[in-house]
Nucleic acid binder design. Structure first.
Lengths: 265, 265
DNA sequence: CGGATACTTGATGAGAATCAACCCGGGTGG
DNA sequence: CCACCCGGGTTGATTCTCATCAAGTATCCG
């Protein structure tokens, strides 16, 4: 269940001082800090009310197709975003870590498109949809950070395609791990030591494979010396080799060297 | 090549009167109209300069990894968004039609993440990145429309996952056609008569299949009486049947009826 | 401790990638 | 104007990967 903490962020965790933020080049942590800085102002101001929610592992933060009047920014922990087909099959569309936004998709027509489930005990900052514009207008830095974040989110949408583009199961898994590694790095975690918070089945769903295949491919990569796998604790031993596996696409046939040519058309 | 039309949009095509726009429930056409309304203001104002570009079929509007200082809104025509792997294999991530935004992904770190190629002679409205905030601040309706549009774009990111989730080739193609149909409807086109602007190979890349498989699956659907296929002219004869094929997922095994349960955790 | 879930491993079959040949239409150049 | 070429599309034969079914082990929960 979700537990609302009435505590505003005030000086919740003033870790690093807010950077000057040249245009849009801010790291992902900044939005959280900015929201922290904004929080007490907001607490005073009537309209907006920022709260931190605790989300227990396995709890569903947002429900698919539920009315969307909240936006969430992940503060700690992790989530999986899923979409459930009519036949009940649930497909994992992606994962969300610190400073990722959850629920923005619902702004289009007031209903969430995806559901989000916590993979571990997590905390999120809740932003009322209506307060969004006000906040953005009042705080330019926050506005830019938000814009930047959305762009990143949109760019990440390509990740799933990238992962699916590789036909070979091993390549898909390798790509997933590379992605995960770089995202963990972006969150300030180790890019080599990966603690998988999601089940094999979640990964399988994300990659469009059977969960048995994940097991097998993990073993293949492990035997190849790329990884050390112990349960959900995965260490990348040979990043080069892993990347090499990730690179391997089918074919590379069909000389796709035409874009430059098409451009001159 | 791209031909810049200095002509501002002024009263370019004042088709339907701009709706009052309750919150965010606006159709996709509205952003274009709003931009049209804004255009002459912008022309007068110093900072912003809205231009319409012509993009010839096959021309590349934005290049992957190129510096991103422009944002484009599709005014007519269509585009494919692609990402090229290191080995030269180009993967189609999605398609863009009227009122879709191209290039927002570049706002994160000033470099476009995807490339966009025109599938037919098209026109786009070019928005300088720097002018974006100004415009949004000045015109609330436009701000909301933009927010709505981005949300929609984000939601569409789930489309590709949805399509890939189906293992069976026929199901993937069926889903693609269903998606296409509804998007064409959203653009004011016929949802039954689909004029495919993209090649079989593009579709194959989008669906993660071989282009031969597209041919075969088209035939299967055609023989099943769902479609009438003539070259790139596809007519949906039996939408029900098509949707039925689209629904069929592998398994539906692995009782994924746990979300409701997990929620109560 | 017992039940359930997560994970692993093996055997088998279906389905799609691949290779190859072919047709068709449009554009180019002679 | 015709011949040619090339990219797009279709179809067939073969190969091989991965989904599926099945059984078994490990692990976490109450």
């Amino acid at each position: 269940m979700l537990t609302a903490l009435p505590t505003p962020l005030s000086h919740a965790r003033s870790a690093s001082p807010p950077r000057s933020g040249g245009d849009c080049q801010m790291g992902p942590a900044d939005l959280i800090e900015l929201l922290g800085g904004v929080a007490d102002l907001a607490a005073r101001s009537d309209t907006t009310r920022l709260a931190v929610l605790r989300v227990a592992r396995g709890a569903m933060l947002v429900h698919e197709a539920a009315p969307a009047d909240m936006l969430y920014v992940v503060r700690s922990g992790s989530f999986k975003c899923i979409k459930t087909a009519e036949d009940g099959y649930e497909h994992v569309l992606g994962f969300a870590w610190r400073s990722d936004v959850i629920g923005y998709d619902g702004l289009a027509d007031q209903r969430y498109v995806f559901a989000a489930v916590a993979l571990e005990d997590s905390r999120v900052i809740a932003l009322p949809r209506m307060a969004l514009r006000t906040l953005r207008l009042r705080h330019e830095a926050l506005d830019l950070a938000f814009q930047c974040l959305l762009a990143r989110q949109l760019a990440h949408a390509g990740d799933i395609a990238e992962v699916m583009a590789a036909v070979a199961a091993d390549a898909r898994l390798a790509r997933f791990l590379v992605q995960l590694s770089s995202r963990m790095a972006a969150c300030g975690q180790s890019p080599r030591r990966l603690l998988l918070r999601m089940s094999r089945r979640d990964i399988a769903s994300y990659l469009g494979l059977a969960h048995e295949t994940i097991s097998r491919s993990l073993r293949v990569l492990s035997d190849a010396g790329c990884l050390r796998v112990a349960e959900r604790d995965v260490e990348i031993l040979d990043a080069q080799a892993l990347r090499r596996v990730a690179r391997s696409t089918r074919g590379a046939a069909d000389d796709e060297v035409r874009p430059a040519l098409a451009c001159a058309a």
